[in-house]
Amino acid sequence: MTTRKITVNVNGTPREGEVEPRLLLVHFLREDLSMTGTHIGCDTTSCGACTVLLDGKAIKSCTAFAVQADGREVMTVEGLEKDGKLDRIQEGFHQEHGLQCGFCTPGMMMTTYALLKNNPSPSEHDIRWGISGNLCRCTGYVNIVKAIQYAAQKPAE
């Protein structure tokens, strides 16, 4: 199968790849770049475990081709921590026990990142609506909502 050369800016670093057009973005990140923080939980764009930011917008990377990210910026969970300091969202999830098994957590945090960028002071309803494309089986969502409220009260870096 023919391949195509792409360059994707991932967490601020240009990353090159020689990929089949059918390669999903999530597999490019996980397998070609060995960045396994982004997870796969379904194949129907339902669970949100694979959520990353593409040019600042939260997308499900199981439903985007790597070639669609060519020349664009992708941010993953690995890009949240800056200079050894956790992002306010990571801090919120830790402080409020917003994670248990940790599998949905990266996608949940990336959705939160986009949510807070668009709506810095969300209501509980805004938060619940904002994360409704991300499934969590462990937490019952209560502490995820609290974690996002915690983060929203801290200034963005």
């Binding site: 996980r30 397998e31 060995s34 960045m35 396994t36 923080g37 982004t38 997870h39 796969i40 993953t76 969970v77 690995e78 949240l80 921590e81 956790l86 990571q90 999830f93 830790h94 402080q95 026990h97 994670l99 940790g102 599998f103 957590t105 990266p106 945090m109």
Partner: peptide, 21 residues
């Protein structure tokens, strides 16, 4: 007390089966 295991999960450094290569 806050959970010890959070440190790796929050950074995307959990090691799940599909991460084994």
């Amino acid at each position: 007390i806050k959970r010890k295991e959070d440190a790796r999960f929050l950074r995307g450094q959990g090691k799940f089966v599909d991460d084994v290569k």
